[in-house]
């Protein structure tokens, strides 16, 4: 048997899994630079980062859920609700609308976590359900319409669209969130426990880790970051809508998986998600560039998602694949 050198073996090697996305990213950048010289300038890169920011914030949130071996299918709903809340509340509450919108995400994240953990509902169903609850609320609050952020409100969201020292504010926001999440996963007790739960829940449980609390915190983080993404998106588009972020669920999950975080949990992190989000973003730009119809984007991402899952998944961890 010459199986040792099969492609599958190479893909399953641990170090290659971390390196492949990075190589892919560099490769993609090189291809674009060759095809359109001048791409690698500060200005276009800043634009690329700015366009990736919302996706990255969403993907960072869902990274927490995926690292635990779960999934959060409610992020697009939570982000949309946050955008509606911000647009609705800016005229009356002023700057206080920001924390309120973000807190709503935190609350629904905690709710997802509690439903998942306490009622023992699988996370994809629990978050599918809370996602429905949240979408219904967003539709109800906004009466099913998009809400434009008027002149007065736009003054208060202007800071998000500003640039500081040549860097767009959204890039700084996502950098801060990315670094904070990275540190939280690597250097805090919660982060360590989250990875332990993802790597082996029975062992983590036996070692005395409060599995339930860890999971609830992870889903809370996912919800809160989704809400922040929704707020940033609303500020950039000057509008909030109950379907604003619907198109972002798949790219966000794809970014996490393409970055090299396994859906089986325990392997991966925020740095990989950053690489994944950039890959997704560049592929999107590249498709427009090459002239692929914009409606086909979803097809490409769907196929990419399946391929990435198939490559990164740790099959030794699931006895029966359902």
């Amino acid at each position: 048997m010459n199986e040792t050198f099969s492609i599958r073996r190479i893909f399953e090697g641990k170090w290659t899994q971390g390196a492949i996305p990075l190589i892919l990213l560099v490769g993609l950048l090189l291809i674009i630079e060759i095809a359109a010289p001048g791409f690698m300038t500060g200005e276009t890169l800043a634009l690329l980062f700015a366009n990736t920011a919302v996706l990255f914030i969403l993907a960072t949130g869902v990274t927490f859920a995926i690292l635990l071996g779960g999934i959060d299918l409610s992020i697009q709903a939570v982000a949309s609700l946050a955008s509606v809340m911000l647009a609705q509340l800016l005229p009356s509450l002023g700057f206080a609308a920001f924390p309120v919108a973000i807190l709503s995400g935190l609350v629904f994240g905690i709710l997802s976590g509690i439903v998942h953990v306490k009622l023992r509902v699988p996370s994809f169903v629990a978050t599918l359900a809370t996602g429905g609850v949240v979408t219904g609320l967003a539709l109800w609050v906004s009466n099913g319409r998009a809400i434009t952020i008027e002149e007065g409100g736009r003054e208060k969201t202007a800071w998000i669209n500003a640039t500081i020292a040549g860097l767009p504010m959204v890039v700084l926001i996502s950098a801060v969130i990315g670094i904070a999440s990275f540190l939280a996963l690597r250097y805090t007790r919660f982060g360590r426990q989250a990875i332990a739960v993802g790597a082996g829940e029975p062992a983590a449980w036996a070692a005395g880790i409060n599995v339930d609390r860890t999971k609830i915190i992870a889903f809370a983080a996912s919800g809160m970051l989704a809400a922040i993404a929704g707020v940033v998106l609303a500020a950039r588009l000057s509008s909030g809508s109950p379907v604003l972020a619907n198109q972002l669920l798949l790219p966000a999950i794809a970014a996490v998986i393409v970055g090299g975080t396994a859906i089986t949990g325990g392997l991966g992190g925020v740095a990989r998600t950053a690489v994944g989000a950039l890959i997704i973003s560049i592929v999107r730009i590249g498709m427009t560039f090459v002239g692929v119809n914009i409606f086909l984007e979803n097809m490409v991402f769907g196929a990419v998602l399946i391929a990435a899952v198939a490559i990164t998944i740790d099959r030794s961890k699931i006895a029966v694949i359902k």
Partner: peptide, 30 residues
Amino acid sequence: SPYVQQTVQGLMIIAAVALSLDRVRLRIVK
């Protein structure tokens, strides 16, 4: 409001799953 329908359906999923799962068998839920 018909917009609340999804909210109600979501709550129904949660309630139904919580009531019907044979949770004694499951310690690990992902």
